[in-house]
Write a protein that binds this DNA or RNA. Structure first.
Lengths: 246, 246
DNA sequence: CGTTAACTTGATAGCATTCAACTAGCGTGG
DNA sequence: CCACGCTAGTTGAATGCTATCAAGTTAACG
């Protein structure tokens, strides 16, 4: 089931890291992805699973999470179209967390047995995927900093900045805002804050004229101040120079 | 400057993930590592650097950190002999954090120009390094959970469990405890807690008979309860089955 | 239009920070 | 040899950010 070249999420994603040759691009497009539709809040892979395939998010919003003691859950990252949140399963047999959709989504799957020889044949693409997992790691480190050393207000501001830049790079956001269907509960699970406090903090961000949030959408009213509030610096996203951000 | 085979930290490290063939082992030993001594609290690479080499920790204790606003610092990981904390620089040009020793240390360096063709020649070792960076990523995710959803007591317990298992796997710890020269300040920087609170929490852990801590050394008095206190589960370390832990 | 999920608001409680001071250990230099 | 200074660790009190509890409001949806 071929995906169209123009909007191919994997190509766009890799090219946020470096430019592919035409042959490489063709090879990616020729890969036998299996598309599948998901509802909101469906698990894609679960903690302790041993996946035999990798997925790419084509449409929708997903997250990694882990259920902690007392049934609370920690969200460890959000994922947007183009992301391949389980490439790691190529090298790590057992999942140490779960992956789930947050909105109705479309995912493209590729079996490990197809991907492995493909990467052996195209080492530059293999390196690109390695690089992508390294950027993921950099984002996790940033989250450690965010949750570890920032208070609620900058913490949420930083999260919004990250999502905005990542979406813009993938051309999924205009320059004024982006679709972000996370509930306040989910933002709390990601930032380690209670729903109540997320609510109050968002109100403050709105009151300060930094953002406006409608249902499922965040409008950036003052990008400079939002970045300042979140101490945001996009170095950790390791974007290829020349990629459009703002 | 060849390192002895028996205790070669890179080999031992890779073999916590999978077993090397004799030829692969020889090839690793033959690599032209450059050894260098460091004092405590010296930077190895700095935020924004563009490293041209990778390092392996041969002896000592190191950490990744980032300076946050107001001069506070967040430690994002601790590193022990065998760790290669900047392999990522092979694929990510610019450092998004710093790397520093915490104790007097010995490091072995290998230029990117040597490592790159080496990895091209030994794809299994290349995959092992990829895998190792993925485990690093898994540890960061665990830290997000730890800092995001656990209170001081389990948070510190979890950190101690992690360090103990990692050290045991590298045969750097007996079954009763391990050398850990982090100051309470540094533990605070890593867990996002104030020095004062780290101090009080350690006292509680000691008072509950879980650990004993002398200068630079942690003695595990009750491993089962310490794990329970920290909700610790070593899945995220992705150890090769058969590796000795406890 | 009823039902449920998401969001909002107010009040109370608690974990952790901050400030400040004090102790212990250790190396240096007079 | 002891004073001095420095670092790491310890303790107490006060403040504060954030969680929790409880209830009410809005929005979405069949």
């Amino acid at each position: 089931m071929p995906l169209s070249l123009a909007a191919h999420p994997m190509i766009r994603k890799i090219e946020t890291l470096f430019l592919l040759t035409p042959e490489e691009r063709d090879a990616v497009v020729a890969l036998p992805f299996a598309l599948r539709n998901y509802n909101a809040d469906q698990d894609i892979v679960r903690d302790r699973d041993r996946p035999s395939q990798c997925c790419i998010i084509v449409k929708g919003l997903a997250c990694r999470y882990k259920i902690m003691g007392e049934g609370k859950r920690q969200i460890m990252s959000f994922h947007i179209p183009g992301d391949m949140p389980d490439v790691m399963s190529l090298h790590l047999e057992v999942m140490d967390h779960s992956l789930a959709t947050m909105t109705p989504s479309v995912l493209a799957f590729l079996p490990h047995e197809v991907l492995r020889p493909f990467l052996a044949k195209y080492p530059r693409i293999s390196d690109a995927l390695w690089r992508d997992t390294l950027v993921d790691g950099a984002i996790f480190r940033e989250w450690v900093c965010n949750v570890g050393h920032r208070e609620a207000y900058p913490r949420i501001a930083h999260l919004l900045c990250e999502m905005f830049v990542r979406m813009r790079v993938m051309e999924l956001a205009g320059d004024d805002g982006f679709d972000f269907a996370a509930t306040q509960q989910e933002i709390g699970d990601a930032t380690g804050l209670s729903t109540v406090h997320v609510n109050r903090t968002l109100q403050k961000l709105r009151g300060d004229g930094l953002i406006r949030s409608e249902s499922g959408r965040v409008v950036i009213l003052n990008w400079a101040d939002l970045q300042r509030a979140g101490e945001f610096d996009d170095t950790f996203l390791h974007l290829r120079p020349g990629v459009v951000t703002h």
